[in-house]
Computed example of a mutant assay.
Amino acid sequence: MRRKHIKCLVGVTVTAATALGSATVPTAAAGHADHVVRPGASIQSAVNAASPGDTIVILPGTYRESVLIKTPGLTLRGIGDRTVIRPAATATKAANACATEGNGVCVVGTKGHTVDDVSIHSLTVSGFKKSGVWASWTDGLTVRRVTATKNGTWGIAQERSTRAAFLRNTATGNGDAGVFVANSVSEEGGATDTRGTEIRENTLSGNRIGVTARRVRNLVIDSNRITANCSGVFVVGDESKPAAGAMTISGNRIVKNNKFCAATPRLSAIQGSGIVLTGSERTVVRSNVVRDNVGATPLSGGILLFKSFVGALNTDNSVTRNLVQGNKPADLANRDTTGKGNTFDSNTCGTSVPAGMCAE
């Protein structure tokens, strides 16, 4: 079971002496403190001064910096869309690794020492060259009510991490996926068991892909609203073991993902794709609404099974009780006919390839 931490944030009074900087104020939780950051002060300085269990409260304003978190148990909390983090105006030699890699907020551990139970809440990260939020080697990360917009690659992304929760975020206009979860972005290898990572109730639009789950397993993609991307949900596997999959994609509304994205060295052009499984095993696609995803690429259509681009097959996947209508060239398509054990059952749809997969 994923660990949960509940902490009450008490009222904070910022005195005149701290009006241009940050204040550290004790909280009701013994030994924990709130570090209050005002415009003109450094979020990173407050993070560096914090101890495990502390909260960094970022008051409304625009902060031009990247923030690197390596301390477990920290909470980084803004005041909704009034707290905005953007890239620094000019590069400096003192920039942290998060900034030099082009990311906005980073939570970074190591293989032998994960950074656990960090929470990022209620702020906007925008305009970064790579990712708005980036995590590597973490456990129990929570990203909630964050807006990630117009970042060059991913809105919110993690690799090599477990038991994360991405909840009620908004990711729009990012160069690749709005939410991206992977085993590793720099190495080949078998799928990471995410131990129950949750991607729930997010709004994802205008990205290349709404959600990408690449070489990962044991996670839930549920109750998201996904529209106006090139593809809604993309599960990517390959021939490595363990295989990608063992996940549930359920209760999502995936509508009109009809933006066109040109081919890349790793992927053909995509447009009008609702849910795509490539090289996946034992994935359950259930009770989704997938409508009006229209395109003319090999990956276009409502819900598709497609052999991975390195030849890995889809096996033992279940597509059940989905409402799939108005998608072209087909609502349901099994384009991986050599895959074994894949089933389509009780789906409400109009067209399928091969024919006969829609419920009467």
Rank of each mutant, 00 (worst) to 15 (best):
T248I: 09
S273G: 15
I249H: 03
C261E: 07
N252F: 01
R225C: 04
R214Q: 11
K256L: 10
V289H: 02
F306S: 15
S280I: 05
D222G: 10
C230Q: 00
S268H: 11
G245I: 04
S250R: 13
N258Q: 12
T227M: 06
P242D: 07
L304R: 12
K307D: 09
G232F: 01
F260D: 13
A228C: 03
A243P: 08
S308F: 12
T297W: 03
G279V: 02
A296G: 10
I209T: 12
E239V: 14
N252E: 07
E239A: 15
G206Y: 03
A262S: 13
K241E: 11
N229Y: 01
A246C: 08
S300L: 07
R217M: 10
S273H: 12
S205N: 08
A263P: 04
R291L: 08
S287A: 13
C261N: 13
S273L: 08
E239D: 13
G251W: 02
V211T: 09
K259I: 07
I249P: 06
A244N: 05
R208V: 08
N224Q: 06
N229R: 00
T297V: 07
N207Y: 04
A243S: 14
L219D: 00
L277N: 02
S280E: 03
N293M: 03
S223N: 09
N207D: 13
T248F: 08
R266F: 14
A244K: 04
S205L: 10
G245F: 02
V216N: 10
V216Y: 00
I221D: 01
I221R: 00
I226P: 04
A269F: 03
R214P: 00
V216P: 15
V233E: 02
V289D: 07
S240A: 15
G274C: 10
T264Q: 11
V236N: 01
R282L: 05
L219S: 01
A296F: 05
V211N: 01
S308W: 11
I303Y: 06
K241P: 05
N207K: 04
A228L: 09
R286V: 12
S240V: 06
V276Q: 05
L304E: 12
R208N: 07
A243V: 09
S223F: 06
G301D: 06
S280Y: 01
I209G: 04
V290P: 00
N257F: 08
